[in-house]
Amino acid sequence: MKAKDTLLYLDGVSVSFDGFRAINNLSLVLQAGEMRAVIGPNGAGKTTMMDIITGKTRPDTGDVYFKGEIDLTRHDEAEIALLGIGRKFQKPTVFESHTVEDNLMLALAGPRSAFSALFHRQSADEAERIDDILHTIRLHTKRDWLAANLSHGQKQWLEIGMLLAQDPKLLLVDEPVAGMTDAETAETAKLLREIAKTRSVLVVEHDMHFVRELDVKVTCLHEGSVLAEGSLDYVSNDQRVIEVYLGR
């Protein structure tokens, strides 16, 4: 079957809410180690697509496979996360009443059972991993801060750090630079390219400068299905893409 040898494979996926088709016969393939940018106007179904991949929403029809053989429609959010798919939300969601360090500690790959959590004690190895990530996301000086007190951009980074701590094989990143300054945006692009060296990444973004900086294959969604796919230049010269999204 075609799904083999792919990391993420969506074929003929449709879902509707109260008669409104949010995703309409969507097909999308992501290879292992690939970074992909997904663009599209509001309501194109970008977030719903992520909901389907991460198990939050069940598709009405269609196949969703991870690593060629795992049927994601049969698993719930927690199982999918443990399979190695991490997700960053559009609105940064960190645990505001925990410290930066505890946020990372909670995200860190490891046993997830309630019993092990009750008697968990931090190992030296875990402490080192947390240190590494804190440096990567440039928050090592703020490890004791409550996450609630971070700035918007810092929260976005903390969330990316949490993704890293999860050690996923596939990262789904929803609008990582929304509300960031230009400098922060550039930093974030650098960070994502760094991450993409070892993992697959699917980025949803509106910011075309950022997408250009990522310099990867682009998929444009419209009304729940793929409108165009290819390099950014190819996609941005597509007549239909210009019409529905980029504007003239």
Binding site: A78, A81, R87, L106, A107, S113, A114
Partner: peptide, 10 residues
């Protein structure tokens, strides 16, 4: 739901 996406069986 964030906790769920981190892999915890809430």
């Amino acid at each position: 739901s964030r906790m769920r996406f981190l892999g915890y069986r809430v």
